[in-house]
Structure formats: C-alpha cells, structure tokens
C-alpha cells in the first residue's frame, strides 16, 4: 500500500502479506487494546473495589506472581481438553460414517444418539464422579461427551449430503466403493465435519472446567473455585482469561487444519464474506 516502498523484493512481498493480515485483523486487535485501556482507566477513575473489579494491570501482576502453579494447572486442564476432544473425534467420525452408510445403524443407533443429545450432558458429570472417582477419567469423559454430539451430527449430515447425480456419474465409471468414498464422498463431507469439529472444540474447554468444578483437586476449574472462595478476584480474572486462551488455541488449531485440508471450501467462504462485507 505504501507509496515509498520499493517494489519486487521478497521482503516487500512479506511486508504486504503482513499488511494484509493487519488490515484484516487490525481492527480486532485495536478493539481489544482499547477495551483493556478503558477497563484500566474506568477502575482507576471510579476507584471501584479491587475484589469487585480489578484493573488489568493488577490481574497481570498477580498472575505473574503465581505463574508456575497456575500454569501447572493450565497444563492439567489442557490435557483433559485435548484428550477428551481427540477421543470424541476418533469415536464420532467413524461412527458417523457407519450410520450414514448403514440402513440398520441409521434406524437403530441414530435415534438413540438424537435422544441422548437432548440430555443436559453437564448434569451427568456428578454421575461420572461416582463411577470413575476424582481423577483424569471423569473429566476426559465429560469433555468427550460434550464435543461428541456436534461432531457426530454434522459428520452424518456431511456424509449423507452428497449430490445423487455425482454418485450416478461415478457409478458409470465402474469405480469401487472405496474409490468413490475417497475421491468424492469424503472430500465433500469435510466442510460439514469441520463445522462440527469447531463447535466441538468450543464446547471442550467449557466441559473441562465444569468437570473440574464438580470434583477436582487440580486444574483451572478447581483453581477458579479456590480463588473465588478467597475473593481473590484478580486471579479469578487471570484464570478466566487463561481458559479463554486455551479454548481459542484449540479452536484456531482446528481452523488452521481446516485451511490446509479444504482450502477450496475455506477460500469460498472467505470470498462469500468479502462479498457481504
């Protein structure tokens, strides 16, 4: 964009890519900075009590003081999120495939899944404590349970939503079932599978914290309750921000993988967004 920059160098190309990125994300970054500045100023000007609303600077200093134990807890929670989420993917995508292609599975298993989906999964968490105790397993299962349903439901929809004419075309080539799956059905299901994966990713962090609320002696959910009980509001804020960052990291990892797996779909969505903008 700049009118003084020399043209044609690699550095220049990189700079313009960065520029493009900033033009796109810059607004959000500025908005976040403005939010924190306004928050800081508002707290200082109004002199509001710290245990009600601490300024961001205080949240930061408190967090740095207890960096090591908090990060150890964050690691515990991250492991629960990632393990439960991966388990949900590994179980639900193949199961979705089976349900989508088997009349029996669709008639027998799918209604059960739809029914189970109605159950408020979080209400089941205490039950897991009874069954599996206080350790890693019940948290993993709650994360699994919450991310499982959006992934399986959208994966089934994805596998089923193939255009019948394209399949008819494929049948006139004599291609094997496997080939039709690999070359047509799977790629066309991926956009919907990724939609489910992203919804699941967003739910996974919530699930881990709730599971830790119910019964735990470590993890960010446990810490959050401790800090809350002590009216240590700066650390409550620090924990919440940390949890959000973990959730965001999982979500963007999935989105990054999506970008590399189905660039044709992502670019289409981006163009659609640009057209709307």
């Amino acid at each position: 964009m700049s009118d003084v920059a020399p043209v044609g160098t690699v550095a220049d190309a990189r700079e313009s890519a960065l520029g493009a990125w900033f033009r796109k994300r810059g607004g959000a970054i500025v908005a976040f900075i403005a939010l924190f500045v306004a928050w800081e100023l508002a707290v200082r000007v109004t002199g509001i009590k710290e245990y009600l609303l601490p300024p961001p600077s205080r949240v930061y200093t408190e967090f740095m003081k207890r960096f090591d134990p908090v990060m150890a807890s964050a690691w515990v929670t991250t492991r629960e999120i990632v393990a439960g989420y991966l388990l949900a993917i590994v179980v639900s995508v193949p199961l979705a495939l089976w349900i989508a292609y088997s009349r029996f599975m669709e008639n027998a298993v799918y209604p059960v899944i739809v029914f189970l989906q109605i159950i408020p999964k979080i209400a089941v968490a205490p039950l897991f404590i009874i069954w599996f105790g206080f350790g890693f397993a019940p948290k993993l299962l709650v994360v699994f349970l919450l991310s499982f349903f959006p992934i399986i439901v959208s994966s089934i929809a994805g596998f089923k939503s193939v255009d019948p004419d394209i399949m008819d075309f494929a049948r006139t080539t004599g291609a094997s079932q496997w080939k039709m799956f690999a070359m047509i059905r799977l790629p066309q299901a991926l956009p919907q599978i990724f939609t489910g994966l992203k919804v699941g990713a967003a739910l996974a962090a919530t699930a881990a914290v709730v599971a830790e609320f119910v019964a735990s002696d470590k993890g960010l959910g446990y810490l959050l309750l401790q800090y809350n009980g002590n009216l240590d509001t700066p650390m409550v804020f620090a924990t919440i921000i940390l949890l959000s960052l973990i959730g965001l990291a999982v979500y963007y990892t999935v989105e990054l993988i999506e970008r590399f797996t189905i660039p044709w779909h992502v670019s289409q969505r981006l163009t659609a967004e640009e057209t709307l903008a």
């Binding site: 004419d165 008819d168 006139t172 004599g174 066309q188 779909h265």
Partner: peptide, 17 residues
C-alpha cells in the same frame, strides 16, 4: 450401471475442490 458410455446430467455436478 453401464460403464461403456459418457453421461451428461441436467445439472453439471462438478466437484468443487
């Protein structure tokens, strides 16, 4: 399904990827 033929449907049904 017969394979010794070429078929064009009413809609083009191309793979978008």
């Amino acid at each position: 399904p017969q394979t010794a033929l070429g078929i064009v449907f009413q809609s083009p049904v191309l793979l978008e990827w």
